[in-house]
Design a protein around this nucleic acid. Sequence first.
DNA 1: ATAATATGAAACCTTTCAGTTTCTCTTTAT
DNA 2: ATAAAGAGAAACTGAAAGGTTTCATATTAT
Lengths: 104, 104
Amino acid sequence: MTQQLVFRAIADPTRRSIMTMLSSGERSLSDITAAFEMTRPAVAKHLNILREGGLVRVRKQGRERLHRLQPEALKTVSEWLSFFDQFWDEKLANLKQSVEMDDE
Amino acid sequence: MTQQLVFRAIADPTRRSIMTMLSSGERSLSDITAAFEMTRPAVAKHLNILREGGLVRVRKQGRERLHRLQPEALKTVSEWLSFFDQFWDEKLANLKQSVEMDDE
DNA sequence: ATAATATGAAACCTTTCAGTTTCTCTTTAT
DNA sequence: ATAAAGAGAAACTGAAAGGTTTCATATTAT
């Protein structure tokens, strides 16, 4: 299932950090690597996993590969989350309240 | 960081499935195990990880331990997600549209 | 042409993870 | 009192994850 690849991708703190970084614009592998204390191949692997999860797209430009955030893929997570909205205490309290109001 | 424990917890499909199951009410370890094709200790480990992520609370009742969903812990994920809202194409389009409307 | 830059890819290592089996403990039912 | 049910914990296994080093390839700059 491809949904799993998104959850997998966002499970790692380094990858979430990369996502934040890419939110301000396209970056090359070297650029991204400079911001982390790990080797280039390690970062490249993280980017691959982000790509597999659909969270990042790559564009080739000369000898560089520019990575761009693809936040639409987060919709999967968002939808999963929304299922649980109805079970939040606050929501339940609100619902309870409105039910009580209906009684009056 | 405790935030990481939530992301870790929801990364596994079995654990997400357990969460869905618990959304309909408290369940004992044996109950939950019956719904999966794995041994009881395996499920117990998943429940521990969910507990570490704050997503599940346990209540002791007799010889049973009843597990209850604690969906408030998902707020962490929800807030993380919301940061990326502004980068969604749709949102950007909407924003752009409202800006254009302001010009008129 | 040659050197430097940017990256891909393979091989390897170590740790974590998901799962099992086995044993023990506590609580209830007979 | 004894047996059965529910669960915790430890030891082990295989696979996946995160990382490194090393080598090869494509593109740009001198």
